[in-house]
Design a protein around this nucleic acid. Sequence first.
RNA 1: GUGCCUGUAGUUUAGCUGGAUAGAAUGCAAGGCUACGAACUUUGAGAUCGGGGGUUCGAAUCCCUCCAGGCACACCA
Length: 569
Amino acid sequence: MLNFKKEISNAIAQTTNIEETEIYSYIEVPKETKNGDYAFPCFKLAGKLHKSPMDIANEIKQNISLDENIIEKVEVVSGYLNFFVNKKCLARIVIDELKNTSEYGKSNIGKGKNIVIDYSAPNIAKPFHIGHLRSTVIGGALYKIYKYLGYNTIGINHLGDYGTQFGKMIEGYTLWKDEYDLQKDPINQMMDIYVRINNLCKEDEAVLERCRNNFKKLEDGDKYCTEVWEKLKALSLKEFERVYKLLDCQFDSWNGEAFYSDKMEEVINILSRTGKMHESQGAQIIDLEDKGINTPIIIKKSNDSTTYATRDLAAIMYRARTYDFDKALYVTSYEQSLHFKQVFETAKLLGLDEKYTNGLEHVSFGMVLLPTGKMSTREGTVVKLEDLLNEAMDRASKIIEEKNPGLENKAEIAKRVGIGAVIFNDLYNNRIKDEVFDWDTILNFQGETGPYIQYTFVRTNSIIEKAGVDIKNIKVSEEYLQDEDSQNILKLIYSFEDVLKEVTDKNEPSILSRYLISVAKAYSTFYNNNKVIVDDAEIKNTRLFLTHATGKILETGAKLLGIQMPDKM
RNA sequence: GUGCCUGUAGUUUAGCUGGAUAGAAUGCAAGGCUACGAACUUUGAGAUCGGGGGUUCGAAUCCCUCCAGGCACACCA
Protein backbone atom coordinates (compact mmCIF):
# COMPACT_ATOMS: atom_id res chain seq x y z
CA MET A 1 0.00 0.00 0.00
CA LEU A 2 1.17 3.51 -0.79
CA ASN A 3 2.91 5.07 2.20
CA PHE A 4 2.17 8.79 2.42
CA LYS A 5 4.72 9.39 5.14
CA LYS A 6 7.38 7.85 2.96
CA GLU A 7 6.37 9.95 -0.04
CA ILE A 8 6.70 13.07 2.07
CA SER A 9 9.94 12.18 3.80
CA ASN A 10 11.46 11.19 0.52
CA ALA A 11 10.56 14.54 -1.04
CA ILE A 12 11.86 16.51 1.94
CA ALA A 13 15.07 14.51 2.02
CA GLN A 14 15.75 15.42 -1.59
CA THR A 15 15.52 19.15 -0.97
CA THR A 16 17.49 19.18 2.27
CA ASN A 17 20.21 16.57 1.90
CA ILE A 18 19.22 15.02 5.17
CA GLU A 19 18.76 11.28 5.60
CA GLU A 20 15.28 10.19 4.69
CA THR A 21 14.98 7.90 7.70
CA GLU A 22 15.67 10.85 9.99
CA ILE A 23 13.04 12.97 8.26
CA TYR A 24 10.63 10.05 8.40
CA SER A 25 10.98 9.76 12.15
CA TYR A 26 10.09 13.44 12.63
CA ILE A 27 6.89 13.36 10.63
CA GLU A 28 3.82 13.37 12.81
CA VAL A 29 0.08 13.28 12.48
CA PRO A 30 -1.42 16.58 13.64
CA LYS A 31 -4.14 16.48 16.24
CA GLU A 32 -6.27 18.96 14.33
CA THR A 33 -7.37 18.07 10.82
CA LYS A 34 -7.11 21.69 9.77
CA ASN A 35 -3.36 21.28 10.20
CA GLY A 36 -3.28 18.65 7.52
CA ASP A 37 -2.84 14.90 7.52
CA TYR A 38 0.89 14.89 8.14
CA ALA A 39 3.18 17.53 9.53
CA PHE A 40 6.88 18.14 9.53
CA PRO A 41 8.12 20.26 12.44
CA CYS A 42 11.00 22.28 11.03
CA PHE A 43 12.36 23.04 14.52
CA LYS A 44 14.07 19.70 14.31
CA LEU A 45 16.35 20.94 11.56
CA ALA A 46 16.91 24.47 12.85
CA GLY A 47 20.08 23.58 14.71
CA LYS A 48 21.46 21.46 11.94
CA LEU A 49 20.85 23.94 9.14
CA HIS A 50 21.49 27.08 11.22
CA LYS A 51 18.32 28.70 10.03
CA SER A 52 15.05 29.65 11.61
CA PRO A 53 12.24 27.08 11.40
CA MET A 54 10.14 29.55 9.44
CA ASP A 55 12.85 29.96 6.78
CA ILE A 56 13.38 26.24 6.54
CA ALA A 57 9.68 25.64 6.11
CA ASN A 58 9.40 28.23 3.38
CA GLU A 59 12.46 26.97 1.56
CA ILE A 60 11.31 23.38 1.61
CA LYS A 61 7.89 24.41 0.47
CA GLN A 62 9.36 26.26 -2.52
CA ASN A 63 11.70 23.52 -3.58
CA ILE A 64 9.76 20.41 -2.77
CA SER A 65 8.29 18.38 -5.57
CA LEU A 66 5.31 16.25 -4.73
CA ASP A 67 2.81 14.54 -6.96
CA GLU A 68 -0.44 16.48 -6.67
CA ASN A 69 -2.33 13.27 -7.07
CA ILE A 70 -0.81 12.03 -3.85
CA ILE A 71 -0.22 15.13 -1.73
CA GLU A 72 -2.46 17.90 -2.92
CA LYS A 73 -1.39 20.78 -0.69
CA VAL A 74 1.49 21.94 1.46
CA GLU A 75 1.10 24.77 3.95
CA VAL A 76 3.52 26.58 6.19
CA VAL A 77 2.15 27.35 9.63
CA SER A 78 4.42 28.70 12.37
CA GLY A 79 7.41 26.53 11.68
CA TYR A 80 5.45 23.51 10.54
CA LEU A 81 5.04 22.15 7.09
CA ASN A 82 1.55 20.74 6.88
CA PHE A 83 0.76 18.22 4.19
CA PHE A 84 -2.70 17.49 2.90
CA VAL A 85 -3.24 14.10 1.37
CA ASN A 86 -5.11 13.94 -1.90
CA LYS A 87 -8.55 12.81 -0.83
CA LYS A 88 -9.29 10.75 -3.90
CA CYS A 89 -5.94 9.07 -3.67
CA LEU A 90 -6.54 8.04 -0.08
CA ALA A 91 -9.97 6.71 -1.00
CA ARG A 92 -8.59 4.83 -3.97
CA ILE A 93 -5.80 3.04 -2.17
CA VAL A 94 -8.00 2.03 0.73
CA ILE A 95 -10.70 0.74 -1.61
CA ASP A 96 -8.21 -1.19 -3.70
CA GLU A 97 -6.59 -2.72 -0.69
CA LEU A 98 -9.93 -3.77 0.73
CA LYS A 99 -11.04 -5.25 -2.55
CA ASN A 100 -7.82 -7.13 -3.15
CA THR A 101 -7.36 -8.75 0.23
CA SER A 102 -9.70 -10.93 2.16
CA GLU A 103 -7.99 -10.09 5.45
CA TYR A 104 -7.29 -6.41 5.67
CA GLY A 105 -4.24 -5.36 7.64
CA LYS A 106 -2.84 -8.85 7.63
CA SER A 107 0.85 -8.86 6.89
CA ASN A 108 3.92 -10.98 6.80
CA ILE A 109 6.31 -8.73 8.71
CA GLY A 110 6.65 -11.49 11.26
CA LYS A 111 7.45 -14.18 8.74
CA GLY A 112 10.14 -16.53 9.95
CA LYS A 113 10.04 -15.19 13.49
CA ASN A 114 8.95 -17.30 16.44
CA ILE A 115 7.14 -15.72 19.37
CA VAL A 116 6.50 -17.65 22.55
CA ILE A 117 3.75 -16.22 24.72
CA ASP A 118 3.42 -17.57 28.23
CA TYR A 119 0.03 -16.56 29.56
CA SER A 120 -2.98 -17.38 31.71
CA ALA A 121 -1.28 -20.06 33.86
CA PRO A 122 -3.92 -20.79 36.50
CA ASN A 123 -3.25 -23.16 39.39
CA ILE A 124 -4.58 -26.67 39.21
CA ALA A 125 -7.15 -27.57 41.86
CA LYS A 126 -7.85 -23.93 42.62
CA PRO A 127 -10.57 -21.63 41.34
CA PHE A 128 -10.02 -19.76 38.10
CA HIS A 129 -10.81 -16.28 39.36
CA ILE A 130 -10.89 -12.76 38.00
CA GLY A 131 -7.23 -12.33 38.91
CA HIS A 132 -6.44 -14.72 36.04
CA LEU A 133 -8.55 -12.82 33.58
CA ARG A 134 -6.01 -10.19 32.67
CA SER A 135 -3.17 -12.53 31.80
CA THR A 136 -5.56 -14.67 29.81
CA VAL A 137 -7.09 -11.82 27.90
CA ILE A 138 -3.93 -9.74 27.33
CA GLY A 139 -1.90 -12.80 26.34
CA GLY A 140 -4.74 -14.07 24.20
CA ALA A 141 -4.96 -10.80 22.29
CA LEU A 142 -1.20 -10.63 21.74
CA TYR A 143 -1.24 -14.22 20.57
CA LYS A 144 -3.83 -13.46 17.92
CA ILE A 145 -2.28 -10.19 16.82
CA TYR A 146 1.24 -11.56 16.41
CA LYS A 147 -0.21 -14.41 14.44
CA TYR A 148 -2.12 -12.01 12.20
CA LEU A 149 1.12 -10.20 11.43
CA GLY A 150 2.68 -13.40 10.22
CA TYR A 151 4.66 -14.44 13.27
CA ASN A 152 4.84 -18.07 14.17
CA THR A 153 3.19 -17.79 17.54
CA ILE A 154 3.32 -20.35 20.33
CA GLY A 155 0.89 -19.94 23.19
CA ILE A 156 1.93 -21.68 26.38
CA ASN A 157 -0.21 -22.26 29.41
CA HIS A 158 2.38 -22.68 32.14
CA LEU A 159 0.00 -24.35 34.57
CA GLY A 160 0.65 -24.19 38.29
CA ASP A 161 0.73 -27.93 38.83
CA TYR A 162 3.76 -28.42 41.04
CA GLY A 163 4.77 -28.09 44.65
CA THR A 164 4.04 -29.36 48.15
CA GLN A 165 0.44 -28.25 47.73
CA PHE A 166 -0.06 -31.24 45.45
CA GLY A 167 1.39 -33.53 48.07
CA LYS A 168 -1.36 -32.18 50.28
CA MET A 169 -4.02 -32.67 47.65
CA ILE A 170 -2.96 -36.26 47.13
CA GLU A 171 -3.16 -36.87 50.87
CA GLY A 172 -6.58 -35.23 51.17
CA TYR A 173 -7.89 -37.11 48.18
CA THR A 174 -6.66 -40.40 49.59
CA LEU A 175 -8.28 -39.75 52.95
CA TRP A 176 -11.68 -38.45 51.88
CA LYS A 177 -12.28 -39.28 48.24
CA ASP A 178 -15.46 -41.16 49.09
CA GLU A 179 -16.99 -38.13 50.77
CA TYR A 180 -16.83 -35.94 47.68
CA ASP A 181 -18.33 -36.13 44.22
CA LEU A 182 -15.48 -34.73 42.19
CA GLN A 183 -17.27 -35.21 38.91
CA LYS A 184 -20.09 -32.88 39.83
CA ASP A 185 -18.38 -29.72 40.98
CA PRO A 186 -14.66 -30.45 40.81
CA ILE A 187 -13.05 -27.14 41.65
CA ASN A 188 -15.19 -26.38 44.68
CA GLN A 189 -14.84 -29.93 45.94
CA MET A 190 -11.09 -29.79 45.50
CA MET A 191 -10.99 -26.43 47.26
CA ASP A 192 -12.81 -28.02 50.18
CA ILE A 193 -10.30 -30.82 50.31
CA TYR A 194 -7.43 -28.36 50.10
CA VAL A 195 -8.70 -26.23 52.97
CA ARG A 196 -9.45 -29.30 55.05
CA ILE A 197 -6.07 -30.94 54.56
CA ASN A 198 -4.32 -27.67 55.33
CA ASN A 199 -6.12 -27.46 58.63
CA LEU A 200 -5.26 -31.04 59.41
CA CYS A 201 -1.61 -30.38 58.61
CA LYS A 202 -1.56 -27.56 61.12
CA GLU A 203 -2.88 -29.85 63.82
CA ASP A 204 -0.92 -32.94 62.99
CA GLU A 205 2.75 -32.77 62.07
CA ALA A 206 2.67 -36.40 60.93
CA VAL A 207 0.12 -35.58 58.24
CA LEU A 208 2.23 -32.72 56.98
CA GLU A 209 5.19 -35.06 56.78
CA ARG A 210 3.13 -37.50 54.71
CA CYS A 211 2.15 -34.63 52.39
CA ARG A 212 5.78 -33.65 51.86
CA ASN A 213 6.54 -37.26 51.23
CA ASN A 214 3.73 -37.52 48.69
CA PHE A 215 5.22 -34.69 46.74
CA LYS A 216 8.62 -36.31 46.84
CA LYS A 217 7.05 -39.52 45.57
CA LEU A 218 5.28 -37.59 42.85
CA GLU A 219 8.59 -36.13 41.74
CA ASP A 220 10.13 -39.58 41.71
CA GLY A 221 7.35 -40.84 39.48
CA ASP A 222 5.46 -42.96 42.00
CA LYS A 223 2.58 -44.63 40.20
CA TYR A 224 -0.24 -43.94 42.63
CA CYS A 225 0.71 -40.33 43.28
CA THR A 226 1.06 -39.63 39.58
CA GLU A 227 -2.33 -41.14 38.91
CA VAL A 228 -4.06 -38.99 41.50
CA TRP A 229 -2.21 -35.92 40.34
CA GLU A 230 -3.25 -36.55 36.77
CA LYS A 231 -6.81 -37.09 37.79
CA LEU A 232 -6.94 -33.79 39.66
CA LYS A 233 -5.25 -32.06 36.77
CA ALA A 234 -7.73 -33.45 34.26
CA LEU A 235 -10.67 -32.37 36.39
CA SER A 236 -9.29 -28.83 36.62
CA LEU A 237 -8.55 -28.60 32.94
CA LYS A 238 -12.08 -29.61 32.12
CA GLU A 239 -13.32 -26.60 34.05
CA PHE A 240 -10.69 -24.27 32.65
CA GLU A 241 -11.51 -25.24 29.11
CA ARG A 242 -15.06 -24.07 29.57
CA VAL A 243 -13.73 -20.63 30.41
CA TYR A 244 -11.17 -20.68 27.60
CA LYS A 245 -13.89 -21.52 25.16
CA LEU A 246 -15.97 -18.57 26.30
CA LEU A 247 -12.95 -16.29 25.99
CA ASP A 248 -11.90 -17.72 22.62
CA CYS A 249 -8.46 -18.54 23.94
CA GLN A 250 -6.06 -21.11 22.51
CA PHE A 251 -2.81 -22.70 23.60
CA ASP A 252 -0.29 -24.74 21.71
CA SER A 253 1.27 -26.16 24.83
CA TRP A 254 -0.08 -27.03 28.25
CA ASN A 255 3.29 -27.82 29.75
CA GLY A 256 3.02 -26.64 33.31
CA GLU A 257 5.66 -26.40 35.96
CA ALA A 258 5.74 -30.12 36.57
CA PHE A 259 6.86 -30.64 32.99
CA TYR A 260 10.22 -29.16 33.92
CA SER A 261 10.84 -31.31 36.97
CA ASP A 262 13.36 -33.47 35.09
CA LYS A 263 14.92 -30.52 33.25
CA MET A 264 16.24 -28.58 36.19
CA GLU A 265 19.27 -30.70 36.86
CA GLU A 266 20.93 -29.46 33.69
CA VAL A 267 20.32 -25.86 34.73
CA ILE A 268 21.84 -26.49 38.12
CA ASN A 269 24.86 -28.19 36.58
CA ILE A 270 25.49 -25.35 34.15
CA LEU A 271 25.09 -22.73 36.85
CA SER A 272 27.40 -24.49 39.26
CA ARG A 273 30.06 -24.72 36.56
CA THR A 274 29.96 -20.93 36.12
CA GLY A 275 31.31 -20.61 39.63
CA LYS A 276 28.75 -17.92 40.38
CA MET A 277 26.44 -20.17 42.29
CA HIS A 278 27.34 -20.50 45.94
CA GLU A 279 25.99 -21.65 49.25
CA SER A 280 24.37 -19.17 51.58
CA GLN A 281 22.35 -20.02 54.67
CA GLY A 282 22.10 -23.56 53.40
CA ALA A 283 20.68 -22.56 50.01
CA GLN A 284 22.36 -22.33 46.61
CA ILE A 285 22.14 -18.78 45.32
CA ILE A 286 23.58 -16.42 42.74
CA ASP A 287 24.34 -12.81 43.63
CA LEU A 288 23.11 -10.32 41.10
CA GLU A 289 24.18 -7.15 42.87
CA ASP A 290 26.67 -6.26 40.15
CA LYS A 291 23.75 -6.34 37.73
CA GLY A 292 21.83 -3.82 39.82
CA ILE A 293 19.58 -6.40 41.44
CA ASN A 294 20.15 -6.42 45.16
CA THR A 295 18.26 -9.63 45.91
CA PRO A 296 20.01 -12.87 45.02
CA ILE A 297 18.23 -15.57 43.06
CA ILE A 298 17.69 -18.87 44.84
CA ILE A 299 18.44 -21.88 42.68
CA LYS A 300 18.11 -24.49 45.37
CA LYS A 301 16.47 -24.23 48.75
CA SER A 302 18.23 -25.30 51.92
CA ASN A 303 16.19 -28.51 51.90
CA ASP A 304 17.69 -29.27 48.49
CA SER A 305 14.49 -28.70 46.53
CA THR A 306 14.23 -26.33 43.58
CA THR A 307 12.37 -23.04 43.28
CA TYR A 308 10.10 -21.64 40.63
CA ALA A 309 13.04 -19.58 39.43
CA THR A 310 14.91 -22.78 38.61
CA ARG A 311 11.88 -24.03 36.75
CA ASP A 312 11.60 -20.82 34.76
CA LEU A 313 15.26 -21.15 33.81
CA ALA A 314 14.68 -24.72 32.69
CA ALA A 315 11.69 -23.51 30.71
CA ILE A 316 13.82 -20.88 28.95
CA MET A 317 16.32 -23.55 27.86
CA TYR A 318 13.57 -25.88 26.75
CA ARG A 319 11.73 -23.19 24.83
CA ALA A 320 14.88 -21.91 23.17
CA ARG A 321 15.63 -25.40 21.91
CA THR A 322 12.11 -26.39 21.03
CA TYR A 323 10.78 -23.20 19.54
CA ASP A 324 13.93 -21.25 18.60
CA PHE A 325 12.14 -18.13 19.79
CA ASP A 326 12.92 -14.59 18.73
CA LYS A 327 10.80 -13.27 21.56
CA ALA A 328 9.49 -14.95 24.66
CA LEU A 329 6.80 -12.96 26.42
CA TYR A 330 5.72 -13.56 30.00
CA VAL A 331 2.30 -12.13 30.64
CA THR A 332 2.00 -11.88 34.40
CA SER A 333 1.20 -9.21 36.96
CA TYR A 334 3.85 -6.68 37.98
CA GLU A 335 4.12 -8.32 41.38
CA GLN A 336 6.55 -10.67 39.67
CA SER A 337 8.81 -7.97 38.24
CA LEU A 338 11.74 -8.78 40.47
CA HIS A 339 11.41 -12.48 39.81
CA PHE A 340 11.67 -12.03 36.06
CA LYS A 341 14.50 -9.54 36.37
CA GLN A 342 16.43 -12.15 38.32
CA VAL A 343 15.54 -14.98 35.98
CA PHE A 344 16.36 -13.06 32.81
CA GLU A 345 19.70 -11.94 34.25
CA THR A 346 20.55 -15.45 35.36
CA ALA A 347 19.52 -16.84 31.97
CA LYS A 348 22.58 -15.09 30.54
CA LEU A 349 24.71 -17.57 32.44
CA LEU A 350 23.15 -20.59 30.76
CA GLY A 351 25.33 -20.38 27.70
CA LEU A 352 22.43 -19.73 25.35
CA ASP A 353 22.72 -17.67 22.20
CA GLU A 354 22.19 -13.96 22.82
CA LYS A 355 19.23 -14.09 20.52
CA TYR A 356 17.32 -15.91 23.22
CA THR A 357 18.35 -13.91 26.25
CA ASN A 358 17.64 -10.67 24.40
CA GLY A 359 14.21 -11.91 23.44
CA LEU A 360 13.00 -12.41 26.99
CA GLU A 361 10.40 -9.90 28.04
CA HIS A 362 8.11 -9.53 31.01
CA VAL A 363 4.80 -8.12 29.82
CA SER A 364 3.52 -6.96 33.18
CA PHE A 365 0.10 -5.69 34.09
CA GLY A 366 -1.65 -4.14 37.08
CA MET A 367 -3.60 -5.99 39.71
CA VAL A 368 -7.29 -6.58 40.02
CA LEU A 369 -8.40 -5.27 43.38
CA LEU A 370 -11.73 -5.43 45.11
CA PRO A 371 -13.18 -2.21 46.53
CA THR A 372 -12.23 -3.68 49.89
CA GLY A 373 -8.65 -4.43 48.84
CA LYS A 374 -6.85 -7.51 47.66
CA MET A 375 -8.72 -10.70 46.92
CA SER A 376 -8.19 -13.52 49.34
CA THR A 377 -8.99 -17.17 48.84
CA ARG A 378 -8.90 -17.70 52.58
CA GLU A 379 -11.43 -14.97 53.29
CA GLY A 380 -13.59 -16.21 50.46
CA THR A 381 -13.54 -12.89 48.64
CA VAL A 382 -12.43 -14.22 45.26
CA VAL A 383 -14.77 -13.63 42.36
CA LYS A 384 -14.73 -16.68 40.15
CA LEU A 385 -14.20 -15.92 36.50
CA GLU A 386 -17.00 -18.15 35.40
CA ASP A 387 -19.40 -16.34 37.72
CA LEU A 388 -18.39 -13.05 36.21
CA LEU A 389 -18.87 -14.35 32.68
CA ASN A 390 -22.24 -15.85 33.56
CA GLU A 391 -23.35 -12.62 35.15
CA ALA A 392 -22.24 -10.74 32.05
CA MET A 393 -24.30 -13.05 29.85
CA ASP A 394 -27.31 -12.66 32.16
CA ARG A 395 -27.09 -8.94 32.05
CA ALA A 396 -26.80 -8.94 28.27
CA SER A 397 -29.88 -11.20 28.13
CA LYS A 398 -31.89 -8.75 30.17
CA ILE A 399 -30.97 -5.87 27.92
CA ILE A 400 -31.89 -7.91 24.85
CA GLU A 401 -35.29 -8.70 26.39
CA GLU A 402 -35.79 -5.04 26.98
CA LYS A 403 -34.65 -3.71 23.61
CA ASN A 404 -35.09 -6.47 21.13
CA PRO A 405 -37.28 -9.26 22.53
CA GLY A 406 -38.04 -10.74 19.11
CA LEU A 407 -34.42 -11.53 18.36
CA GLU A 408 -33.49 -15.02 17.24
CA ASN A 409 -30.68 -16.94 18.83
CA LYS A 410 -30.77 -14.81 21.96
CA ALA A 411 -28.54 -17.01 24.09
CA GLU A 412 -25.64 -16.92 21.63
CA ILE A 413 -25.95 -13.17 21.21
CA ALA A 414 -26.10 -12.58 24.95
CA LYS A 415 -22.96 -14.66 25.24
CA ARG A 416 -21.07 -12.65 22.66
CA VAL A 417 -22.20 -9.31 24.00
CA GLY A 418 -21.68 -10.13 27.67
CA ILE A 419 -18.28 -11.74 27.20
CA GLY A 420 -17.31 -9.05 24.72
CA ALA A 421 -18.02 -6.40 27.33
CA VAL A 422 -15.84 -8.16 29.89
CA ILE A 423 -12.92 -8.70 27.53
CA PHE A 424 -13.05 -5.21 26.14
CA ASN A 425 -13.19 -3.69 29.60
CA ASP A 426 -10.01 -5.51 30.50
CA LEU A 427 -8.19 -4.47 27.35
CA TYR A 428 -9.33 -0.88 27.31
CA ASN A 429 -6.69 0.71 29.53
CA ASN A 430 -2.92 0.54 29.61
CA ARG A 431 -2.12 -2.86 31.01
CA ILE A 432 0.07 -1.45 33.77
CA LYS A 433 -2.86 0.24 35.51
CA ASP A 434 -4.48 -1.41 38.50
CA GLU A 435 -8.14 -2.16 38.18
CA VAL A 436 -10.67 -1.95 40.96
CA PHE A 437 -13.22 -4.62 40.27
CA ASP A 438 -16.70 -3.22 40.01
CA TRP A 439 -19.66 -5.09 38.54
CA ASP A 440 -21.23 -1.96 37.10
CA THR A 441 -18.08 -0.78 35.37
CA ILE A 442 -17.17 -4.12 33.91
CA LEU A 443 -20.72 -4.83 32.77
CA ASN A 444 -21.42 -1.38 31.43
CA PHE A 445 -22.71 -1.57 27.86
CA GLN A 446 -22.71 2.12 27.07
CA GLY A 447 -20.06 4.51 25.88
CA GLU A 448 -16.57 3.22 25.05
CA THR A 449 -17.29 -0.46 25.53
CA GLY A 450 -17.27 -3.75 23.67
CA PRO A 451 -21.02 -3.61 23.01
CA TYR A 452 -20.59 -0.18 21.44
CA ILE A 453 -18.26 -1.69 18.88
CA GLN A 454 -20.56 -4.64 18.39
CA TYR A 455 -23.54 -2.36 18.03
CA THR A 456 -21.84 -0.32 15.35
CA PHE A 457 -20.87 -3.49 13.53
CA VAL A 458 -24.42 -4.84 13.71
CA ARG A 459 -25.67 -1.57 12.32
CA THR A 460 -23.32 -1.73 9.34
CA ASN A 461 -24.54 -5.24 8.61
CA SER A 462 -28.11 -4.28 8.91
CA ILE A 463 -27.74 -1.43 6.43
CA ILE A 464 -26.10 -3.67 3.89
CA GLU A 465 -28.76 -6.29 4.36
CA LYS A 466 -31.46 -3.70 3.86
CA ALA A 467 -29.84 -2.38 0.69
CA GLY A 468 -29.78 -5.90 -0.68
CA VAL A 469 -26.76 -5.44 -2.94
CA ASP A 470 -23.84 -7.71 -3.65
CA ILE A 471 -21.09 -5.75 -1.99
CA LYS A 472 -18.33 -7.50 -3.89
CA ASN A 473 -19.59 -6.42 -7.27
CA ILE A 474 -20.54 -2.82 -6.85
CA LYS A 475 -18.87 0.16 -8.37
CA VAL A 476 -17.24 2.43 -5.83
CA SER A 477 -16.39 5.99 -6.72
CA GLU A 478 -13.79 7.93 -4.78
CA GLU A 479 -15.57 11.01 -6.08
CA TYR A 480 -18.09 10.63 -3.28
CA LEU A 481 -15.65 9.93 -0.48
CA GLN A 482 -14.15 13.37 -0.19
CA ASP A 483 -16.31 14.73 2.60
CA GLU A 484 -14.88 15.05 6.08
CA ASP A 485 -16.89 12.21 7.62
CA SER A 486 -15.87 9.69 4.96
CA GLN A 487 -12.28 10.84 5.00
CA ASN A 488 -12.06 10.36 8.75
CA ILE A 489 -13.12 6.76 8.37
CA LEU A 490 -10.75 6.17 5.46
CA LYS A 491 -7.80 7.59 7.36
CA LEU A 492 -8.51 5.25 10.25
CA ILE A 493 -8.84 2.24 7.99
CA TYR A 494 -5.61 3.25 6.30
CA SER A 495 -3.78 3.22 9.63
CA PHE A 496 -5.02 -0.21 10.75
CA GLU A 497 -1.81 -2.03 9.93
CA ASP A 498 0.29 0.59 11.72
CA VAL A 499 -1.91 0.21 14.77
CA LEU A 500 -1.33 -3.54 14.84
CA LYS A 501 2.39 -3.00 14.51
CA GLU A 502 2.34 -0.59 17.39
CA VAL A 503 0.49 -3.13 19.50
CA THR A 504 3.29 -5.65 18.99
CA ASP A 505 6.03 -3.05 19.45
CA LYS A 506 4.66 -2.18 22.87
CA ASN A 507 2.85 -5.42 23.63
CA GLU A 508 -0.10 -3.24 24.45
CA PRO A 509 -3.50 -4.46 23.19
CA SER A 510 -5.27 -1.36 24.52
CA ILE A 511 -3.95 0.50 21.49
CA LEU A 512 -6.16 -1.68 19.32
CA SER A 513 -9.15 -1.33 21.66
CA ARG A 514 -8.93 2.44 21.55
CA TYR A 515 -8.50 2.37 17.81
CA LEU A 516 -11.68 0.34 17.36
CA ILE A 517 -13.55 2.87 19.46
CA SER A 518 -12.43 5.67 17.18
CA VAL A 519 -13.45 3.68 14.10
CA ALA A 520 -16.90 3.02 15.55
CA LYS A 521 -17.23 6.63 16.56
CA ALA A 522 -16.17 7.93 13.16
CA TYR A 523 -18.74 5.69 11.53
CA SER A 524 -21.51 6.73 13.91
CA THR A 525 -20.84 10.36 13.09
CA PHE A 526 -20.87 9.59 9.38
CA TYR A 527 -24.07 7.62 9.78
CA ASN A 528 -25.83 10.41 11.61
CA ASN A 529 -24.86 12.99 9.01
CA ASN A 530 -25.36 10.97 5.83
CA LYS A 531 -28.05 8.74 4.51
CA VAL A 532 -26.49 5.64 3.01
CA ILE A 533 -29.34 4.19 1.00
CA VAL A 534 -30.09 7.07 -1.36
CA ASP A 535 -31.58 7.18 -4.85
CA ASP A 536 -28.33 7.94 -6.68
CA ALA A 537 -26.91 4.46 -7.29
CA GLU A 538 -23.29 5.52 -7.38
CA ILE A 539 -23.42 7.45 -4.13
CA LYS A 540 -25.39 4.66 -2.52
CA ASN A 541 -22.91 1.99 -3.58
CA THR A 542 -19.95 4.04 -2.48
CA ARG A 543 -21.42 4.64 0.94
CA LEU A 544 -22.42 1.01 1.21
CA PHE A 545 -18.87 0.04 0.51
CA LEU A 546 -17.60 2.39 3.19
CA THR A 547 -20.15 0.86 5.55
CA HIS A 548 -19.00 -2.61 4.65
CA ALA A 549 -15.35 -1.63 5.09
CA THR A 550 -16.02 -0.23 8.54
CA GLY A 551 -17.78 -3.42 9.56
CA LYS A 552 -14.88 -5.47 8.27
CA ILE A 553 -12.33 -3.53 10.30
CA LEU A 554 -14.44 -3.68 13.43
CA GLU A 555 -14.97 -7.39 13.07
CA THR A 556 -11.32 -8.13 12.34
CA GLY A 557 -10.07 -5.92 15.14
CA ALA A 558 -12.52 -7.30 17.68
CA LYS A 559 -11.66 -10.85 16.72
CA LEU A 560 -8.01 -10.07 17.35
CA LEU A 561 -8.94 -8.98 20.85
CA GLY A 562 -10.87 -12.19 21.38
CA ILE A 563 -14.29 -10.60 20.95
CA GLN A 564 -16.90 -12.29 18.76
CA MET A 565 -19.34 -10.19 16.78
CA PRO A 566 -23.08 -10.92 16.85
CA ASP A 567 -24.90 -10.44 13.52
CA LYS A 568 -27.79 -8.84 15.32
CA MET A 569 -28.27 -7.65 18.87
C1' G B 1 15.06 1.37 54.51
C1' U B 2 16.25 -0.14 49.10
C1' G B 3 14.42 -0.97 44.12
C1' C B 4 10.41 -0.72 40.57
C1' C B 5 5.56 1.22 39.13
C1' U B 6 1.54 4.84 39.36
C1' G B 7 -0.36 10.11 40.09
C1' U B 8 -3.99 14.18 34.01
C1' A B 9 -11.89 17.10 34.62
C1' G B 10 -16.40 14.54 40.22
C1' U B 11 -15.05 9.29 38.40
C1' U B 12 -12.38 5.92 34.71
C1' U B 13 -8.69 7.51 31.57
C1' A B 14 -5.71 8.79 26.25
C1' G B 15 -1.50 11.44 25.10
C1' C B 16 4.66 10.18 28.03
C1' U B 17 10.83 8.06 21.65
C1' G B 18 9.58 16.76 23.81
C1' G B 19 5.87 20.17 19.28
C1' A B 20 0.42 23.60 17.27
C1' U B 21 -5.75 25.23 21.49
C1' A B 22 -4.22 18.46 26.85
C1' G B 23 -8.33 14.33 23.60
C1' A B 24 -12.22 10.76 25.25
C1' A B 25 -15.85 8.11 28.10
C1' U B 26 -18.89 8.32 32.31
C1' G B 27 -21.79 11.41 35.51
C1' C B 28 -24.32 16.39 35.19
C1' A B 29 -27.30 20.24 31.86
C1' A B 30 -29.81 21.01 27.10
C1' G B 31 -31.22 19.08 22.03
C1' G B 32 -32.10 14.95 18.08
C1' C B 33 -36.11 8.74 16.28
C1' U B 34 -43.25 8.88 10.83
C1' A B 35 -35.28 7.73 9.41
C1' C B 36 -30.58 2.81 6.80
C1' G B 37 -31.06 0.07 14.41
C1' A B 38 -31.44 5.86 20.11
C1' A B 39 -26.78 -0.19 23.17
C1' C B 40 -26.67 5.87 18.90
C1' U B 41 -25.80 11.11 18.19
C1' U B 42 -25.19 16.89 18.72
C1' U B 43 -24.01 20.84 22.11
C1' G B 44 -22.49 22.85 26.98
C1' A B 45 -20.16 23.29 31.71
C1' G B 46 -16.10 20.63 34.02
C1' A B 47 -8.21 20.16 34.04
C1' U B 48 -3.30 24.93 38.87
C1' C B 49 -1.52 17.57 33.87
C1' G B 50 0.49 15.62 42.46
C1' G B 51 3.94 20.17 44.38
C1' G B 52 8.56 22.80 43.51
C1' G B 53 13.02 23.59 40.73
C1' G B 54 15.89 22.83 36.11
C1' U B 55 17.12 21.73 30.62
C1' U B 56 14.92 23.73 25.86
C1' C B 57 12.83 28.12 20.74
C1' G B 58 9.04 24.78 23.06
C1' A B 59 7.65 20.31 28.87
C1' A B 60 1.79 16.40 30.73
C1' U B 61 6.17 14.23 28.15
C1' C B 62 13.28 14.75 29.67
C1' C B 63 16.49 15.68 34.49
C1' C B 64 16.62 16.75 39.96
C1' U B 65 13.84 17.01 44.41
C1' C B 66 9.75 16.51 47.55
C1' C B 67 4.62 14.49 48.45
C1' A B 68 0.83 10.59 48.01
C1' G B 69 -0.53 5.50 46.76
C1' G B 70 0.81 0.52 45.14
C1' C B 71 4.16 -3.71 44.41
C1' A B 72 8.53 -6.37 45.53
C1' C B 73 12.65 -7.15 48.63
C1' A B 74 16.16 -15.39 49.71
C1' C B 75 13.97 -20.70 50.49
C1' C B 76 5.17 -19.60 48.30
C1' A B 77 4.46 -19.82 43.08
